[in-house]
Structure formats: structure tokens, C-alpha cells
Amino acid sequence: MKNALLFLPIALAVMLAGCNLEKEVDIKLPETQERIVVECYLEPGAPINLLLTRSSGYFDPIPEDNLAFLNQTLVNGATVVIRSETGESYTLDNNLVFNQFTKKIFNYSSHLVAPIERGKTYSLEITLENGDLITASTSILPVVPIDSVVVEFNDTDTLARVLTYLTDRPNEDNYYRRMIQHSSLDTIPDQDFTTDDRFVEDVIVFGTPYDYGRGDTVINTIFHIEKAYFDFLESVQLAIASNGNPFAQPSPIISNVQGPNAMGIFTGLSYDRVVSFLPD
């Protein structure tokens, strides 16, 4: 009897492993209204770029090739106008551009560098082919400069850490995006996160582990961002983190564009970037 008792759990484990415990279910998702998604960034001294896409239904087939994917996703034929607070307007052209440094693509852009100025407010007006109007507005924040970047080598090792110092702007709520990349702007950042300044006295220090070797190039970027962009980035990161995780609660995207079924972000890019070359 004792032996039988001992073997029962083993038999049980084998049985458990043999059971098919998955069952496909037919869940009727509501017929989702297609969303129009805007991502538009204004940067003084740079062309204006805008990506206008449509969402796919959760069950929509995944296109097999990239061209088909672009055709299905990109929303073309819209009229896109950026207006300054003083009334100047810039109409963006509907053509596919590819930024060779960041390797990002956009389907609307200004040919020339638009005179975007810091401290000014800009509005966005998108008129879709069906007449729907999407609007948004943003102010271009001042750059918060990086005070210094300090490279420190470990006494006993050949690896270095990188400390990035900046001074928080006093008497206002500030939000930052910190990004640090190895060698080029199109690499996946070693660190990419947003933070606010609620617990900051005046100096902010971002550090890294001892990860950088002699001869490395390290690109430090500090974006000074609006609350709307901060919320958008946080919500996108949360949504990505919960995608595919059955135990996480999916997170909605917090958007700053208005219009029928529209979502996305319209914001200025104000950043300071320091490129450090670690000695050989």
C-alpha cells in the first residue's frame, strides 16, 4: 500500500502533463472602429515629420510582406497643416521619408526646415480624405542642458560607468526622457525612460552600470518633455509591457490629439545631446 501511495503522485504528474488544458474560444470583440494614429514631432532647425496610420482590428490578418503592411497601415491623402501662434502656416507634403540617422519613417513632412521657435505654441490640423478633422496643440519647451557627462572607470577593471548631470529648472513641474545609446542613434538604447522632478532638489544625476569599454562611443540625450508627452510615453510603455502577458492589465494610451477616433501625440522635441568618446 505504501508503495502505491508513493507512485500515485507520479502517476498524477504524468496525467497532468498529458491533459490538453488549452481551449480555443470564440470571443466576440466589438467591431472596433478604426483608429487614426498621429505621431508628429516639432524640432527647431529640423524638418517637421508626421506619421499618420490606421489601427488594425485585433483579429485582422497580419500582412505577409512589408509593402502590403505599409499600404494597409499608412493613411495617405490627408491635408496636414501646422500653424504658429502668430498665424503662419506650413503645409506638409504627403510623401514617405526615411531618417537615415534614426531609421524612423514618416509619411508627411515639410520639405524645408520650418522656423519652429522655443517658447511658442503650435497647432496641428489634419483633414482626412473623408473630411474628418484632427487637431492638437503643443508648446516648444526650452532645452534643459546637460551640465556634464562624467566617465568613471572601475579601479580594478577596464569597464566604465557614465554619469550624466543636469540642473532641474526651478519652480515648475518638469518632465524628462533620458536616453543613452552605444555608438549610434539607431541602436536600441541601453536606458530609455521618463521621469518627473517631484523628488528632485536641483541637480539630477543619471548613472549607468559599469558597462562601457575603452574606445566606446556613448550618446547621452536628455529630452525636456511636456506632461502630455510624458503621459503618452508612459502609457505606450505600459501597454507594450502588458502585451502578451495574460496576468497584466492592459493599459490605455493617453493621447493629446482630438478628433473622431483619433489618438496619438503632437509635441516638440527639446533635447540636449552629448556624445562621449571613451579613451582607448
Binding site: L29, P30, T32, E34, R35, V37, E39, L51, T53, R54, S55, S56, G57, Y58, N66, F69, L70, T73, F98, T102, K103, K104, I105, F106, S184, D186, T187, I188, P189, L233, V236, Q237, A239, I240, N243, P250, S251, P252, I253
Partner: peptide, 22 residues
């Protein structure tokens, strides 16, 4: 209920987009 492409996490993996489900 839907998914859409974003540039937020798109670092040099052109021509692919990073897709977010929401």
C-alpha cells in the same frame, strides 16, 4: 481590441514598425 504601429520604440528596425496592442 486593436493594434497600431508606433515610432516610440522603433530603433533602427526599419522597415518594420513596432506594434502596440491597445
Amino acid at each position: 481590441t486593436f493594434r497600431y504601429p508606433t515610432e516610440v520604440n522603433n530603433f533602427g528596425n526599419y522597415p518594420y514598425f513596432y506594434e502596440v496592442e491597445s
